[in-house]
């Protein structure tokens, strides 16, 4: 398939299977964008999510613009971003126009309860996949654990933790490369 329509359709698929915030699209992104199309690596997905936490706007848009631009510049970014919002536009307009109190319909509530249980299972599984690439060593695991605990138990904005983790990354790697150099001189 031509790249531009393919970007639109793939991200429309991602949009239509996202229930909840941007993190809920990670399982489908891994499947479609990393595994089946090879448009990005797990590491890049982790990078974009971190960038998305600190930049304005919806994370889904950040991810689709980034990957669309990477593959086919501005036309690609437009196609991917339009793709990810397209299902929302159609579905929300139809539901708002036609169905009153959609979210109070009993079978909708039951279906959603099932979908939410499913989404958290899929997200956990995706985090494990992502962690294999995003947490290569003990120092990275310590950064991961610190951000996990701080974000769970404090009300400070995630932006702070992302920036701190970036700074920690620079310090850890600079120190370890210095130490390597020193070790090299000694022998």
């Amino acid at each position: 398939m031509k790249l531009i329509p393919d970007l639109f359709l793939t991200f429309a698929k991602v949009g239509v299977t996202t229930f909840g915030g941007g993190y809920a699209m990670l399982p489908v992104l891994q499947r479609e964008v990393v595994e089946s199309k090879g448009w990005a690596t797990e590491e890049e997905l982790a990078d974009i999510y971190a960038i998305g936490q600190c930049t304005p706007g919806v994370i889904a848009v950040n991810v689709s613009t980034y990957i669309g631009y990477k593959k086919a510049h501005v036309p690609g970014a437009v196609a991917a971003t339009f793709g990810v919002v397209f299902p929302s536009l159609v579905i929300i307009i139809l539901i708002t126009a036609l169905i009153r109190n959609f979210s109070e319909i009993e079978w909708v509530r039951h279906a959603l309860a099932g979908i939410r249980a499913c989404v958290c299972a899929l997200v956990f599984s995706s985090v494990i996949k992502l962690a294999r690439k995003a947490i290569p060593d003990l120092a990275a695991f310590l950064v991961f654990a610190a951000v996990l605990i701080l974000s769970l138990f404090t009300d400070v904005s995630n932006v702070v933790w992302v920036v701190a983790a970036g700074a920690a990354g620079v310090m850890i790697r600079t120190l370890s490369s210095l130490r390597k150099k020193k070790g090299g001189d000694g022998t």
């Binding site: 993190y23 990670l26 985090v127 992502l130 983790a165 970036g166």
Partner: peptide
Amino acid sequence: RYVQYALYGLRAASAALILVAGLRVAEAAL
């Protein structure tokens, strides 16, 4: 080099924050 170093920290943070979001959904769903 330093961009690579920063990304090394950012990726770990990213995995943690996605896990937090998943845990918040799990709290409501499970």
